[in-house]
Design a binder for these strands. Sequence first.
DNA 1: TAGTCAAATGCAACGTTGTTGCAAAACATT
DNA 2: AATGTTTTGCAACAACGTTGCATTTGACTA
Lengths: 139, 139
Amino acid sequence: MHPRIVDTLKRNQLSVTDSRKKILELFLQRKAALAHADIELHSGDEFDRVTIYRTLQTFVEKGILHTIPSADNSVKYALCKDACTEGHHHDNHVHFMCDTCGTTYCLDHVTVPQVQLPIGYQVQQIDLVASGICIKCQK
Amino acid sequence: MHPRIVDTLKRNQLSVTDSRKKILELFLQRKAALAHADIELHSGDEFDRVTIYRTLQTFVEKGILHTIPSADNSVKYALCKDACTEGHHHDNHVHFMCDTCGTTYCLDHVTVPQVQLPIGYQVQQIDLVASGICIKCQK
DNA sequence: TAGTCAAATGCAACGTTGTTGCAAAACATT
DNA sequence: AATGTTTTGCAACAACGTTGCATTTGACTA
């Protein structure tokens, strides 16, 4: 098991349960973002659907995961960098969604550019999702 | 009724039906983006849920509407500019979602900035959604 | 303007996705 | 090991979205 797992949970004042460990491990193993359905698949019948919903929700609240918007009603989740704390996300990196394999990547080193909005719009957060063909799917 | 409605439908080789006219009119009246649920509310019992789903789908395919991604599993739809044609969307403007009133705006005059992605990522489309507080909700 | 064909709609039924309340089980702490 | 708190699983439900098919509507032609 990944050494960071128990540590991450404790640091966020979460009790260390099987489902939380397994779900967190899944995110640490795979580098890509995961949807609820992906987790359900990869965990088999190990946990109840409801537990997965609640765990994801908890992780987002604690700043362990962040959500990635999509245009097809299938929100994905990915690990936050250490900068995120409870209630305060700072995931201002670009996301990339591959149209071929469906994988969603966090491009941690690509920051979201400044955008000049019309006067009166007070911006709190900016999500930038690029889509196209990822490295692995290039022929 | 808005004069552009029948024209838009015919230009896209769609038969002019009541539901299509009403739904298109709704988008022309309100400047903001609408979710399926919004349309269902505003059309009362006039059409079946299924008809709304199918109409939205058709409009997106034809390039009349485009979808706006969101982080909460509630895709919204908004009118495309004339540049969009069947199967080819060119909606590279910024979207703004108000956290207070929930309204989603197309900022047609704010274009999505260039983003330099790592080598190997072939970008097809970029969605940029800003969120915060809109003009009307500023106190 | 009526007749014909193709397309769109409404209905019913179904599957998926997400939520809530509550009892049982697991965890943290002493 | 005992206690109180948190988390889980189950059941039931609500919302969301899809599909097939009969009926209706719209487009087109004569």
